[in-house]
Amino acid sequence: MPKVTIDDISLEVPLGTTILQAARMIGQNVPPAMCYYSKLEGSGGKCRTCLVQVVAGSYKDPRPMPKLVASCRTTVMDGMEVRNTTSSEVQEARKGVTEFLLANHPLDCPVCDQAGECKLQDLSYEHGLSKSRYEFKRREFDRIDIGDKIQLHMNRCILCYRCTQVAEQLTPERVHGVLHRGEHSEISTMIEKAIDNDFSGNMIDVCPVGALTDKTFRFKSRVWFTKPVFAHRNCPGCEGKVTLWYQGSEVLRVTSRKDKWGEAESFICNSCRFDHKKTEDWVIEGPAKIDSHSVISQNHMKFELPVIQPLLTTENEQTA
């Protein structure tokens, strides 16, 4: 088994493991990943936030790699030495990439449903600058409804390509992809065609930012005011293992269960996600485990905030 050293911590990993997976096995100093998704084939390599420095290629060829490499797509070799948090070069590059990702991002977190569980927020919190140096007009797109349950807000998209991979790999017919090129690239369905299949909702779960949002949940509540609960049901279409997000006794939304790295444990069908929003549809397992760093855990055990509650209902009526 190849042995890899990441930030001076050594580990033996199975053949074919990538640096990022090895780092996740170690469990600390894990490079952030905006586009890599272990459950989607061919994902990764695009966002460049997971760049690491390889100071020694392997025992056989101990030369360092000339450039920083994308850890999500670089396979571990026996004797490889990797620097992530211990390399200032990597930290600088990551800062640069974060700035690029935010350059055309609208930073509308106050009105974005993803806020609180947004990977880009986490990334910019750790590696971003306090002030944007990009002084030009940001690119703008119209919002598109792709299907009656999902809204695409391209302004927020970081083009990780995850949703197109979901469409390609989970569903029988691919109806959306990337149009145009460069800065003008956009995720779109051909002539705004609706995406209509049983697993389309998973695009919402894999989106690292708020570009794809659940229309049934839009503006209902900030995520940190809801309480996640694991539940399951006997579903003919999928495994039926989900997280229910409660506010009071009401289920505001249903998502797949996320693991430690923010990835869905199993993809769920649209029927579970959109059509079963009552407690009696589900067998409740207990409170979902939320990372202690997450803003969601700040409010985890409180059921409701009396001050917020009346405000929210009036706002719902306005925006619905």
Binding site: G45, G96, V97, L101, A103, F136, R181, G182, E183, S185
Partner: peptide, 21 residues
């Protein structure tokens, strides 16, 4: 280069346009 960037990876997609501006 701004016009010709494919838009796949973020440094090139955002950076080329920024430099041009």
């Amino acid at each position: 280069y701004h016009h010709e960037s494919c838009g796949q990876c973020s440094p090139c997609r955002e950076g080329t346009g920024w430099m041009e501006r």
